[in-house]
Amino acid sequence: MITALEIIVVILALLIIGVVVAQKSKTQGMGAGFGGGAEDLFGSRARGMDALLSKLTIVLSIAFAICTLLLGRLMHTF
């Protein structure tokens, strides 16, 4: 059981890294809040692939946290 959870945690970690890297940057630097990029920073909503990647990041992160807590409990490390 512990080995299976370790493999799942590694796979989830790699998937989270891939999904986060695939996302488009939401800010354009320090000047985005002061210049013309303010509407992009505060008023835009993610659409299409950005929304899917954002939701997938949340789901994978929750699954990763749960598996990590289960693994820690099974290994008696906390």
Rank of each mutant, 00 (worst) to 15 (best):
I2S: 10
I2T: 10
A4M: 14
E6I: 06
I7Y: 12
I7Q: 11
I7A: 11
I11K: 09
L12R: 01
L12V: 02
A13V: 05
A13W: 06
A13E: 04
L15P: 00
I17V: 08
V19Q: 13
V20G: 03
V21E: 04
V21I: 09
A22I: 04
Q23E: 11
Q23R: 11
Q23W: 03
K26N: 08
K26Y: 03
K26W: 10
Q28F: 01
M30G: 05
A32E: 12
G33M: 13
G33E: 05
G33R: 06
F34V: 04
G35C: 02
G35W: 05
G36D: 13
A38G: 00
A38Q: 10
E39K: 15
E39W: 12
E39P: 02
D40T: 00
F42T: 02
F42V: 06
G43N: 13
G43L: 06
G43A: 15
R47E: 08
R47Q: 05
M49P: 00
M49Q: 08
M49D: 11
A51R: 13
A51C: 01
L53R: 09
S54L: 09
K55A: 09
K55I: 06
K55Q: 05
L56A: 14
I58D: 10
I58P: 01
V59F: 07
V59Q: 02
L60D: 02
S61C: 14
S61H: 09
I62Y: 11
I62G: 14
I62F: 15
I62M: 13
A63P: 02
C67V: 12
T68S: 15
T68Q: 05
L71N: 07
L71Y: 12
G72C: 09
L74M: 14
M75W: 08
H76L: 11
H76K: 15
T77R: 11
F78K: 08
